[in-house]
Design a protein around this nucleic acid. Structure first.
Length: 447
RNA sequence: GCGAGUAUCGUCCAACGGCUAGGACAGCGGUUUGUGGUACCGUUAAUGAGGGUUCGAUUCCCUCUACUCGCCCCA
């Protein structure tokens, strides 16, 4: 039995390694672009309409920025950041979120000298080394809004309104959930109360919830563990512990939402994971058409499409002027698109094309370059397949692309200075002067 | 970080432990080198990686990797 090349130690039969994208990173292929374009266009439009200005931020920042803002002890900072030491020995991190950097920018560029609040929006990728799952990737895109420098509750409302309207415009059926978690001071008292309440029932708690009780008691409120659901009902509610200003501001936010006819649900269990939040917090979740499933299945984990809240302490925490208030929100683009697909939002997937240019032979190909350019500069979307030879194939493509008109240019036409216009629906053909073809086609398409 | 499931052409799906791993769609090329919406013919192309059991593994076992779905967390 002859030895295989491998056994001999040959390397010439080794297949080249096939590279794959990294775990949790994905390619957004041409087919999906209609969704992405639709979301991005709508986001840009609504943000601009509400006089937010676009900002583009670097993907890499000093690690410290996120440790300070997002907070040590959060999962994001403790185990989900793409951090490394760069060649100049700086500890850097691929941004896991953008709020901290927007604040950094606000401070670094002295934006406190601009009319307040400074309203900014961004659209870009974020990075978290989490386990990939439905609607969760290691690189994911967010559309975000930040308004820094105003503590007016109407800003809170405005940002919620924008998020809601955007999703609505994209054809989604969503619910706004809202709560207030007060100032850090009032929250501290509340947390003590909450902990002592749950401590009575310590024995009934699951392991995860026991850990939460130690580490992050607020999280008990949105725990999905079955044992805790009943206990939650009688747990102290944060609303009752709010300081007067927080309470009044919260009421105002709700009034503004009423006025703007944005439907919302008060959710006393809504807390947010990032350290910097204060007062208003909200999330937007898709309304899943719930089939009648087992009662237990009812409160299935809904992935929030986005959320946000006030972060009045963050600017100061990052070295900005004392007491600078701020409010912001972020929406997850992948999740929005997922929801659009799940809710079967109608979308036009066909590339719009009016004219398809077919050429035959080298002379026609050459001449075709200028014919094609004439159509393009006249603003008529024109398809082509200069790389193809047979007319049959080219007409097939014209057909698949649903072109209304095909142009046929062969050797003979080049010599005569003419070109054939073929109506793709009727099959009727017309030979015209190549110099007038754009004009004639324009007329046909117009009528 | 934990749990469950899955892994075959570009895509969707076949193949009792046994023949050259098969089909559909897509792609490419044809059906007198100038006419699409049909048809016909041809053709490209895959067992995720590594080990083990076996005369023989796509099939059974182990490890790894990836994907999917949960938990945790979050967008």
């Amino acid at each position: 039995m002859p030895k295989t090349k491998k056994e001999i130690g040959g390397i010439d039969d080794k297949k080249p390694k096939v590279y794959k994208s990294l775990r949790g990173f994905r390619d957004i292929l041409p087919d999906s672009q209609v969704y992405w374009d639709k979301v991005e266009d709508a986001a840009r439009k609504i943000a601009t309409d509400y006089s937010f200005d676009r900002i583009r931020l670097p993907y890499l920042e000093q690690t410290q920025l996120f440790e300070r803002s997002v907070g040590k002890g959060t999962d994001i900072v403790d185990k989900e950041m793409f951090s490394f030491v760069d060649p100049s020995n700086t500890k850097v991190t691929l941004r896991p979120e953008a709020t901290a950097q927007v604040v950094r920018t606000y401070i670094e560029h002295g934006m406190l000298n601009k009319p307040q609040p400074v309203k900014l929006w961004y659209f870009g990728p974020m990075f978290r080394h989490d386990r990939p799952q439905a609607g969760r990737y290691r690189q994911f895109w967010q559309f975000g809004l930040e308004a820094i420098g105003s503590n007016e509750p109407i800003i809170d409302a405005q940002i919620i309104i924008i998020c809601f309207r955007l999703l609505k415009e994209l054809g989604l059926d969503v619910t706004v959930q809202i709560n207030s978690i007060g100032t850090p001071e009032s929250r501290r008292d509340y947390i003590m109360e909450l902990v002592s309440y749950f401590k009575q029932f310590r024995r009934q708690l699951s392991e995860t919830d026991k850990k939460r009780l130690q580490k992050n008691p607020l999280r008990l409120l949105d725990s999905k563990e079955p044992e805790i659901q009943e206990l939650k009902v009688d747990a102290p509610q944060i609303v009752d512990w709010l300081d007067d200003t927080s309470k009044q501001d919260f009421m105002k936010v709700l009034e503004y939402l009423d006025e703007a006819e944005v439907p919302y649900e008060l959710n006393p269990f809504l807390v947010r994971g990032l350290d910097y939040y204060s007062k208003t917090v909200f999330e937007i979740i898709p309304n899943v058409t719930r089939e009648v499933v087992n009662e237990n299945e009812e409160e299935k984990s809904q992935n929030a499409l986005g959320g946000g809240g006030r972060y009045d302490g963050l600017v100061e925490m990052l070295g900005g002027r004392e007491g600078t208030p701020a409010m912001g929100a972020a929406l997850g683009i992948e999740r929005i698109i997922l929801a659009m697909k799940a809710q079967e939002v109608p979308i036009n997937k066909q590339r719009e094309i009016d004219v398809f240019f077919c050429q035959l032979g080298e002379a026609a190909r050459r001449k075709g370059l200028s014919v094609f350019e004439q159509f393009r500069s006249a603003g008529i979307t024109t398809g082509e397949a200069f790389g193809k030879g047979s007319l049959k194939t080219q007409l097939e493509m014209a057909d698949k692309l649903k072109a209304k008109v095909a142009l046929i240019l062969g050797q003979k036409e080049v010599l005569d200075g003419t070109i054939i216009i073929r109506d793709m629906e009727s099959g009727a053909q017309e030979i015209v002067d190549v110099k007038k073809v754009v004009e004639i086609v324009q007329k046909q398409l117009g009528g």
